[in-house]
Amino acid sequence: MAQIDYFFSVFSPWTYLAGNRLEDIAARHGATVTYKPLDLLGLFDRTGGTRPAARHPSRMAYRGQELARWAARLGVPMLAQPTLYPPNPAPASYAIIAAQQAGGGDTGALVQGLARALWVEDRNIAEDEVIRAALTAAGFSGDLVTTGLFTGAMAYEKNLEEAVDRGVFGSPFYIVAETDQRFWGQDRLDFLDAHLGEL
């Protein structure tokens, strides 16, 4: 059974656009997914990336066009720009880590619910009530907003270190553990699907 390590930022628009395709691919191939939310801005700093705020306006204008094109291609609603962006990613990331560890719910649905809250509902995903609602909707205890803080914070830091060590430099980023094949971006999920079919 293949293992997919999924490195991502909760506020990345590309994480939102990935939707549930990773989970569908994993189910089709009998693979398991480990969710590893991380500090994307910190990752950029560590791996030679440029934070969006420091990018040239032409790059950001093109990014906006690409996001709109992909949303249309995938048939999903998407705000051009949430009111609060970027939000503090840590609280939602801690909750995802704690929920995955606790079990009993659908971690993929939790990630997607938080991404939807930001990119469709224009909500602040750093707020406890938003995180609690996403946890509950995905089948987890809403109390993980507070009880999972310590566990989440420790793992969140480790996820960034692991990502740097394993060659991750953006979000979403998928690594097949058995082969060390790496796939960057929601537009590379077809390649991940094909690779798993070859194992």
Results as ranks from 00 to 15, higher is better:
138 A>P: 00
181 Q>S: 03
112 Q>V: 14
97 I>A: 06
65 Q>A: 07
91 P>F: 14
156 Y>G: 01
19 G>M: 07
167 G>L: 11
165 D>S: 08
151 T>R: 05
168 V>W: 13
168 V>E: 02
131 I>R: 02
94 Y>E: 11
161 E>R: 08
79 L>V: 10
192 L>R: 01
97 I>T: 09
38 L>F: 13
166 R>V: 15
60 M>D: 05
176 V>S: 01
148 G>L: 08
15 T>C: 03
122 D>H: 04
167 G>K: 02
52 P>Y: 14
170 G>T: 04
152 G>Y: 11
187 D>V: 05
53 A>M: 14
2 A>V: 14
93 S>T: 09
81 Q>N: 08
28 R>S: 06
136 T>K: 10
144 L>G: 01
2 A>K: 08
138 A>N: 02
25 I>K: 00
174 Y>T: 04
198 E>T: 11
55 R>Y: 14
6 Y>T: 07
99 A>T: 05
193 D>F: 09
137 A>N: 05
133 A>K: 05
142 G>M: 08
9 S>W: 15
101 Q>I: 15
90 A>G: 02
171 S>V: 06
129 E>K: 05
90 A>Y: 15
121 E>G: 01
62 Y>T: 10
34 T>F: 12
90 A>L: 15
7 F>I: 03
73 R>L: 13
117 A>W: 10
120 V>M: 08
74 L>D: 05
69 R>Q: 10
51 R>H: 13
43 L>T: 06
184 W>L: 01
91 P>M: 11
186 Q>E: 11
72 A>Q: 09
174 Y>C: 03
1 M>I: 11
64 G>P: 05
80 A>W: 15
165 D>E: 14
197 G>A: 05
169 F>P: 00
85 Y>Q: 06
45 D>I: 11
168 V>Y: 08
28 R>V: 13
31 A>G: 01
15 T>L: 08
58 S>P: 03
160 L>E: 06
18 A>N: 00
7 F>P: 00
88 N>R: 04
181 Q>P: 02
95 A>K: 01
13 P>H: 07
199 L>W: 14
159 N>E: 10
135 L>V: 11
130 V>K: 00
16 Y>M: 09
146 T>Q: 09
153 A>C: 05
24 D>Y: 12
120 V>F: 12
180 D>S: 08
110 L>C: 03
81 Q>T: 10
144 L>W: 14
166 R>T: 13
46 R>S: 06
199 L>G: 04
193 D>E: 09
168 V>H: 01
89 P>M: 09
178 E>H: 08
158 K>R: 12
160 L>M: 10
4 I>T: 06
85 Y>K: 05
191 F>N: 02
112 Q>M: 11
144 L>Y: 12
52 P>S: 03
166 R>E: 11
182 R>W: 10
46 R>I: 13
44 F>Q: 02
84 L>F: 14
14 W>R: 01
109 A>L: 12
188 R>P: 00
182 R>I: 12
101 Q>D: 10
24 D>E: 14
150 F>L: 14
176 V>Q: 00
66 E>W: 12
